[in-house]
Protein backbone atom coordinates (compact mmCIF):
# COMPACT_ATOMS: atom_id res chain seq x y z
CA UNK A 1 0.00 0.00 0.00
CA UNK A 2 1.40 3.34 -1.02
CA UNK A 3 -0.23 6.60 -0.07
CA UNK A 4 0.99 10.15 0.03
CA UNK A 5 0.93 11.84 3.39
CA UNK A 6 -2.70 12.53 4.19
CA UNK A 7 -3.35 15.69 6.13
CA UNK A 8 -6.27 18.04 6.69
CA UNK A 9 -5.59 19.92 3.45
CA UNK A 10 -6.08 16.75 1.39
CA UNK A 11 -9.62 16.46 -0.07
CA UNK A 12 -9.50 12.73 0.66
CA UNK A 13 -10.01 13.80 4.30
CA UNK A 14 -13.23 15.46 5.49
CA UNK A 15 -11.60 18.81 6.45
CA UNK A 16 -10.05 19.03 2.99
CA UNK A 17 -13.33 18.13 1.28
CA UNK A 18 -15.38 20.66 3.27
CA UNK A 19 -12.78 23.44 2.81
CA UNK A 20 -13.20 23.07 -0.94
CA UNK A 21 -17.00 22.84 -0.62
CA UNK A 22 -17.02 26.09 1.36
CA UNK A 23 -15.43 27.68 -1.73
CA UNK A 24 -18.20 26.24 -3.90
CA UNK A 25 -16.13 23.35 -5.25
CA UNK A 26 -17.64 19.86 -5.00
CA UNK A 27 -14.74 17.43 -5.13
CA UNK A 28 -15.10 13.71 -5.73
CA UNK A 29 -12.72 10.83 -5.64
CA UNK A 30 -12.41 9.09 -9.00
CA UNK A 31 -10.92 5.61 -9.10
CA UNK A 32 -8.31 5.46 -11.85
CA UNK A 33 -8.77 1.67 -12.09
CA UNK A 34 -12.56 1.31 -12.40
CA UNK A 35 -13.90 4.86 -12.73
CA UNK A 36 -16.08 4.77 -9.59
CA UNK A 37 -16.91 8.22 -8.23
CA UNK A 38 -16.59 8.53 -4.43
CA UNK A 39 -18.48 11.28 -2.59
CA UNK A 40 -16.84 12.51 -0.45
CA UNK A 41 -13.36 11.49 -1.66
CA UNK A 42 -11.56 8.81 0.38
CA UNK A 43 -8.27 6.93 0.13
CA UNK A 44 -9.69 3.67 -1.29
CA UNK A 45 -12.29 2.69 -3.89
CA UNK A 46 -15.15 0.67 -2.44
CA UNK A 47 -15.99 -0.80 -5.83
CA UNK A 48 -12.64 -2.43 -6.60
CA UNK A 49 -10.37 -1.84 -3.60
CA UNK A 50 -7.86 0.25 -5.53
CA UNK A 51 -6.07 3.04 -3.71
CA UNK A 52 -5.37 4.88 -6.96
CA UNK A 53 -8.00 7.55 -6.31
CA UNK A 54 -7.72 10.92 -8.06
CA UNK A 55 -9.56 13.96 -6.75
CA UNK A 56 -11.57 15.77 -9.42
CA UNK A 57 -14.20 18.54 -9.46
CA UNK A 58 -17.73 17.17 -9.85
CA UNK A 59 -20.73 18.71 -11.56
CA UNK A 60 -23.17 20.08 -9.03
CA UNK A 61 -26.11 19.28 -11.29
CA UNK A 62 -28.05 16.05 -11.04
CA UNK A 63 -31.42 14.33 -10.88
CA UNK A 64 -33.47 12.99 -7.99
CA UNK A 65 -32.94 9.22 -7.65
CA UNK A 66 -35.20 8.80 -4.60
CA UNK A 67 -36.72 11.13 -2.00
CA UNK A 68 -38.85 11.34 1.09
CA UNK A 69 -40.02 13.78 3.73
CA UNK A 70 -38.89 13.63 7.37
CA UNK A 71 -41.83 13.98 9.76
CA UNK A 72 -40.06 12.62 12.86
CA UNK A 73 -36.70 14.44 12.91
CA UNK A 74 -33.79 13.95 15.28
CA UNK A 75 -34.09 16.46 18.17
CA UNK A 76 -31.43 18.71 16.62
CA UNK A 77 -33.59 19.37 13.54
CA UNK A 78 -37.03 19.41 15.16
CA UNK A 79 -37.68 23.01 14.17
CA UNK A 80 -37.14 22.24 10.48
CA UNK A 81 -39.63 19.37 10.11
CA UNK A 82 -41.16 18.33 7.88
CA UNK A 83 -38.33 18.63 5.37
CA UNK A 84 -37.51 16.90 2.09
CA UNK A 85 -34.47 14.65 1.70
CA UNK A 86 -33.27 13.03 -1.50
CA UNK A 87 -30.60 10.83 -2.97
CA UNK A 88 -29.33 12.70 -6.02
CA UNK A 89 -27.48 11.19 -8.96
CA UNK A 90 -24.98 13.82 -10.10
CA UNK A 91 -24.11 14.40 -13.73
CA UNK A 92 -20.59 12.96 -13.27
CA UNK A 93 -21.93 9.71 -11.85
CA UNK A 94 -21.64 10.02 -8.06
CA UNK A 95 -24.62 9.87 -5.74
CA UNK A 96 -25.10 12.11 -2.73
CA UNK A 97 -27.81 12.45 -0.09
CA UNK A 98 -29.00 15.88 0.96
CA UNK A 99 -31.95 18.06 1.76
CA UNK A 100 -34.04 19.49 -1.05
CA UNK A 101 -35.27 23.08 -0.90
CA UNK A 102 -38.78 22.12 -2.01
CA UNK A 103 -41.95 20.66 -0.57
CA UNK A 104 -42.24 16.89 -0.84
CA UNK A 105 -45.34 17.19 -3.02
CA UNK A 106 -43.41 19.31 -5.54
CA UNK A 107 -40.60 16.74 -6.07
CA UNK A 108 -40.52 13.64 -8.31
CA UNK A 109 -37.95 11.02 -9.22
CA UNK A 110 -35.98 12.31 -12.20
CA UNK A 111 -36.36 16.01 -11.33
CA UNK A 112 -33.32 18.18 -12.08
CA UNK A 113 -31.62 19.73 -9.06
CA UNK A 114 -28.42 21.66 -8.36
CA UNK A 115 -26.25 21.43 -5.26
CA UNK A 116 -25.83 24.68 -3.38
CA UNK A 117 -23.84 25.36 -0.24
CA UNK A 118 -24.42 27.59 2.74
CA UNK A 119 -22.51 28.38 5.91
CA UNK A 120 -23.87 26.52 8.90
CA UNK A 121 -26.76 28.32 10.60
CA UNK A 122 -26.63 29.12 14.31
CA UNK A 123 -28.80 26.05 14.96
CA UNK A 124 -26.51 23.84 12.86
CA UNK A 125 -23.44 25.17 14.65
CA UNK A 126 -25.04 24.37 17.97
CA UNK A 127 -25.27 20.66 17.19
CA UNK A 128 -21.94 20.49 15.37
CA UNK A 129 -18.96 18.74 16.89
CA UNK A 130 -16.06 21.05 17.58
CA UNK A 131 -14.23 20.12 14.39
CA UNK A 132 -17.41 20.44 12.28
CA UNK A 133 -18.25 23.99 13.36
CA UNK A 134 -17.20 25.69 10.13
CA UNK A 135 -18.13 22.90 7.72
CA UNK A 136 -20.62 24.14 5.14
CA UNK A 137 -23.98 22.45 4.64
CA UNK A 138 -25.18 21.46 1.19
CA UNK A 139 -28.76 21.54 -0.07
CA UNK A 140 -30.26 20.71 -3.45
CA UNK A 141 -32.25 23.42 -5.24
CA UNK A 142 -34.81 22.49 -7.92
CA UNK A 143 -33.81 23.70 -11.40
Amino acid sequence: MTDGDLDATDPRTLPGFFDALADGKLLGGVCTDCGQVLLPPRPACYACGSRAVDVEPQSREGTVFSYTEVHTPPPAFAADAPYTVAVVELADGGRLLGRVAADYSDVAIGDSVELTVHEPTAAEREVALDYETDWPVHIFEPR
Binding site: L14, F18, L39, P40, F65, S66, Y67, T68, E69, V70, T72, P73, P74, A76, F77, D80, Y83, V85, A86, V87, L96, L97, G98, R99, I109, E124, E132, W135, V137, H138
Partner: peptide
Protein backbone atom coordinates in the same frame (compact mmCIF):
# COMPACT_ATOMS: atom_id res chain seq x y z
CA UNK B 1 -20.41 13.86 7.64
CA UNK B 2 -23.14 13.93 4.98
CA UNK B 3 -26.20 11.98 6.14
CA UNK B 4 -26.60 12.91 9.81
CA UNK B 5 -25.88 16.56 9.08
CA UNK B 6 -28.70 16.47 6.50
CA UNK B 7 -31.16 15.40 9.21
CA UNK B 8 -31.71 11.84 8.06
CA UNK B 9 -33.45 9.29 10.32
CA UNK B 10 -33.94 5.53 10.22
CA UNK B 11 -37.47 5.72 8.78
CA UNK B 12 -36.45 8.28 6.16
CA UNK B 13 -33.46 6.16 5.09
CA UNK B 14 -35.73 3.17 4.53
CA UNK B 15 -38.32 5.45 2.91
CA UNK B 16 -35.70 6.29 0.27
CA UNK B 17 -35.43 2.55 -0.44
CA UNK B 18 -39.21 2.15 -0.41
CA UNK B 19 -39.80 5.09 -2.77
CA UNK B 20 -37.29 3.62 -5.20
CA UNK B 21 -38.70 0.08 -4.84
CA UNK B 22 -42.24 1.26 -5.58
CA UNK B 23 -40.86 3.21 -8.56
Amino acid sequence: AIEQRSGITAPSQYALLAKRYLH
